[in-house]
Amino acid sequence: MRKRTISAVLGVLGAMLFAVGLFSGPAGLSPDEQWTALFDRQGVAGTILWDLRLPRLCMAVLSGGALALAGLLMQTYFKNPLAGPSVLGVTSGATLGVALVSLGGVAMGAGLGVVGTVAGALVGSWAVMLLLGAVIGWFRSRSALLIFGLMIGYLTGALVTVLQAGAEAGALQAFVVWGMGSFGHASWSGVLVLAAVLLIAALWSIRHRHDFDMWMLGSLTARSMGVNERGLTYGILAMTGALAALVTAWCGPVAFLGLATPHLVRILYRQHGAGSLIAPVLLMGMVLALFADWTVRFTAIPLNAVLSMVGAPVVLWLLLRRSESTAR
C-alpha cells in the first residue's frame, strides 16, 4: 500500500514538473498560444514547444531513469551501496571518449558529429566497465573498489586536461559547456535512441529481478540457485555502460543521480532488496531529473552544480548513517 501511494505521489509530481516545464519559460508565450501550438506545431510557439522544450523534458526524464537504473544495477552487481556510474569512473570513461572525439579529433570521429560523440562515450564507458568487471575479484574490501573508481576518474581527468590544453578555442568552449551538464542540448534522435536503450535495459532488468536478489546473497549461493553468473555479469556491464554512455554523450557527465536515487527510493519505500526496486528507481530518477532541470531553468545554475549541491550532502549523510548502524 505504502509503495503504491508513494509511486502515485511521485507520478503526479513528475507529471506536474513536466507540465510546468512544457508551458513555462522565458519566451513569454500566452497559454492560448502554447495550447494551440502543442497540437498544430505551427509558428514560433510550435518551434519552442516541439524543438526545444519537449525534447529537453523527454531527455531529462529518460536520463534520470537511465542513470538511476544504472546506479541500481551497479550497486547490486558490486554489492556496494556506494557504487554508481559517476563514482566508479564509468562516466569519466565516457567523458574521455567524448573528449578524444571532440577535442582530440580522433580521425574517424571528427567528421561524424553526434555519432562520433556517442561512439566515443560508448567505447570509454564500456572500457571502464570491463576493467571494473575484471578487477572486482582482486578487491577484498568494498572501499577499495571505490578508490579504484576514483583513480580512474583522476587518470581520465588528467588525459582530458591534456586534450584540453591542445584544443582550439571553439572546441574547448563547447567541451566545457558540455561538461557542466544539461538536458537542453537534446535532439529528437537522441531522445529516441536513449528511449530504446532504456526500454531494453528496463525490460531486461525486470526479467532478471529475482536473479539480482539471489546475487545479493553471494555469488556462489546465486550460482547454486541457478543464476547464470556470466550472463548476469555481461548483461549488467553492457546495460550500465550503454546507459551511462548515452546520457553522457548528450547531456554531459551528469553527477550523483545514479548513486543517490536508489538510496532515496530505499528510504522512502522502506524496501531494501534489488529486484523490487527497479520500477520505483526508474520513476524516482525521472522525477529527480525533471526537478533538477526545473531548478536549472529557473536559477540558471548549471545542472552538475545543482546535482552536486543536493547529491554530495545526501551521500555524506548516507556514509555517516551507515557507519553507525552497520559497522561490518
Binding site: M214, M216, L217, G218, L220, T221, M225, G226, A274, R328
Partner: peptide, 24 residues
C-alpha cells in the same frame, strides 16, 4: 548449497529470501 559466510549486504527480508528459494 550453504556457504560459510552469511550474506551481509542483502537487504531483503527473511520472508523474501524464502520466496527466492521457491523461485529457484
Amino acid at each position: 548449497l550453504v556457504t560459510s559466510t552469511p550474506p551481509r549486504h542483502a537487504g531483503i527480508t527473511v520472508r523474501a529470501t524464502m520466496e527466492l528459494a521457491l523461485r529457484a
